[in-house]
């Protein structure tokens, strides 16, 4: 595998993201999601007052959320809408190129299959981590503006943990996109996996501590400052990184077995 060729492929991914405006609209949507959370939290009492048919003189008692709670809410927004958007945006990562035949034109050149897969993965990762940072930072700024300061360390730690969970799911998108012909099939398989793991973690948190999905819980704890590195924390990080590596290797092996579909 040559680093120069890998970079050529990655640069092509970036150029594609730029020309299809993915590089612009996805971070913008994340920024919007990030801003909306503190904003709706802040104006919730007003909104309820204006919208609801409250009896004359009724006083709404709503506890003011802490800054950390607002940020945790933002993360959970990202975890749903953000993840959905990213999965849909990248669902055709490999299958699109393979179905059109564009992949065969690249794979007859002296390029390793792993480089091809890695370039797709790195292209996803730069956009994912970038958009997440922009959105989360916007949320952090608005939380400071409307509520209170949240320290940098918990903010950063929760960002990294949530990013790792996203990385895991997007790697699954990549794997399914190599396995399946259908782009929609790839997106829904990966989102289904995310849903399943999250649900299992909710039902039996004790037994699912090792699962990548428990990273989201750790991220909420991290931002709220009540974080202590338990044994399962190490496990879930280790397992997630291992599964990500396996996903990349698996995609590469699948591609090697059948480079072209057209």
């Amino acid at each position: 595998m040559s680093a120069v060729k890998l970079m050529t492929l990655v640069r092509k991914e970036w150029l594609e993201q730029l020309r299809s405006f993915k590089l612009i609209w996805i971070p913008l949507v994340f920024a919007l999601l990030g801003i909306m959370q503190p904003l709706t939290n802040y104006y919730m009492p007003v909104i309820i007052e204006k919208a609801g048919n409250m009896p004359e003189g009724a006083v709404i008692e709503m506890p003011v959320p802490s800054g950390a709670e607002v940020l945790a809410g933002t993360l959970s927004q990202f975890g749903m809408i953000g993840l959905l958007i990213l999965a849909l945006a990248f669902m055709g990562a490999v299958s699109g190129d393979r179905n059109s035949g564009a992949a065969s034109l690249v794979l007859v050149k002296p390029v390793s299959f792993l480089s091809f897969i890695l370039s797709k993965w790195l292209g996803m990762m730069t956009l994912l981590w970038g958009a997440l940072l922009i959105g989360y930072a916007a949320s952090w700024y608005y939380t400071w503006l409307l509520f209170e300061t949240v320290d940098f360390a918990p903010f950063l730690l929760s960002y990294v943990l949530y990013g790792l969970w996203f990385t895991f799911i997007l790697t699954a998108v990549l794997l399914f996109s190599t396995l399946l012909r259908s782009a929609a099939g790839a997106a829904f398989s990966a989102l289904g996996l995310a849903l399943l793991l999250t649900a299992l973690s909710g039902i039996a948190p004790k037994y699912m501590g090792w699962s990548p999905s428990s990273l989201t819980g750790f991220a909420y704890e991290a931002v709220q400052g009540g974080f202590d590195a338990s044994a399962s924390f190490g496990w879930s990080i280790g397992v997630t990184i291992l599964l990500i590596a396996a996903g990349i290797a698996g995609s590469s092996a699948l591609l090697r077995r059948q480079p072209a579909l057209d």
Partner: peptide, 24 residues
């Protein structure tokens, strides 16, 4: 191939340069 598929968003020049870079 019989009907080669490129990346439609690239220019012809960009594609050939890209192909050349991939060939080292």
């Amino acid at each position: 191939p019989q009907s080669p598929a490129f990346h439609n968003w690239m220019s012809g020049m960009e594609y050939v340069v890209y192909a050349g870079r991939l060939c080292g």
